[in-house]
Design a protein around this nucleic acid. Structure first.
Lengths: 198, 198
DNA sequence: AATTTCATGTAATTCGTTACATGATTCC
DNA sequence: GGAATCATGTAACGAATTACATGAAATT
């Protein structure tokens, strides 16, 4: 099952899916990807790579590909087993997949899965947010004038942020379903909608 | 110095600042406060309370206050030393204070500090977000059409979210400075602006 | 009478960070 | 030739979670 800590594993597999890469570069790409607050440290990445290497999910690319010089870099690529694991993790849509980081990772690699899974992830995330929204709004209504000025302002802002994300998700779901004509968000006209005919 | 893990401590001190409470209730309030994703477990809270008890930041309220029955609850209150520590932590505005959770906690207890500190926290948070924004947007412009459809959509949504928060912070800063007339956000007319005359 | 919620706690584990340590390569 | 960046790794540590364990009070 997808434990909490499979986040890095999934991310690495997803990135290597695009092509071979070495650790340092993986870290840079990763930090950009979930870059809002979190930065992955070497102390997390390299041990994770070693572990995946042992598990045969990735392998070192024979250095031959870099002819001129440049030795110290260790370039990794996904093994067939790694690709299987990647698909397995992507399609394993459970509670952990709705969580912020895990959702982001999955979303970023949506191109590597099919629409069915995309929809499940998007809809799962949406329901989860809507549940929370309902709960907090109920609480907000109950305690009404009672709450502190700033605490209340914070909660209001939180609610609005989540409402915004729900709308975003709804747009994406609509686009994904091919209700057509509607671009995912405000992007340029034709591009951006994944045509089911592919 | 404010280490990463002082988050719970600050939150507990802040909540008890409003009045005595027992662990279970503290947890509920806490989960509501930073309720978007995180839930604090007993395994974190109770040891933290014990630690604070030892450090003399909080003390048990003599059970006399609950006359009818109800024994098992252990109600805590802040000690003078705890209040000092609370003020110290609140005014200690460093990098850790701009982080998501720490910022939220501090914001929620803004009523218990003065405007000077509020402004420092708000402005600090804003600069931090703006820095990130600049960095990501630069990256976004550089890699332009190159990026994956979904990865790009995620980044765009991230940027917009942060931009929204920056606007929110700017509103709050303006209100805080008493540029007057401008309510903090969209709240009801007169209320909500902290009048400096208090 | 039984189930749920309230209420407190401990032990083991996990995820990940910080700090440390090292060395090659490229830019100035 | 020196500084910055690239690049890889280890050890110690920290914060918080999960799982475990227990029991009282309230609700159905």
């Amino acid at each position: 099952m997808a434990r909490r800590g499979d986040t890095i594993e999934l991310a690495v597999l997803g990135l290597l899916h695009e092509g071979p890469m070495h650790g340092y570069e993986l870290r840079k790409r990763l930090n950009l990807m979930l870059g809002w607050g979190r930065v992955l440290s070497y102390g997390s990445l390299y041990p994770a790579l070693k572990k995946m290497l042992r598990a045969n999910l990735i392998r070192e690319v024979s250095a031959a590909a870099t002819p001129t010089s440049r030795r110290p870099r260790i370039v990794y690529e996904v093994t067939p087993a790694g690709n299987e694991e990647f698909q397995r993790l992507m399609s394993e849509v459970g509670p952990t997949a709705w969580e912020d980081d895990n959702f982001d990772i999955r979303f970023a690699f949506f191109s590597s899965t099919d629409m069915e899974i995309r929809l499940r992830v998007l809809e799962g995330r949406r329901s989860r947010l809507q549940e929370r929204l309902a709960r907090v709004q109920a609480e907000l209504a109950r305690t009404q004038a009672e709450v502190d000025r700033y605490a209340g302002e914070l909660q209001r802002h939180g609610v609005e942020s989540v409402e915004r994300e729900v709308r975003w998700l709804s747009d994406l779901i609509r686009a994904e379903r091919g209700d057509s004509e509607a671009p995912p968000t405000r992007s340029a006209g034709t591009a951006g909608v994944p045509t089911p005919s592919d």
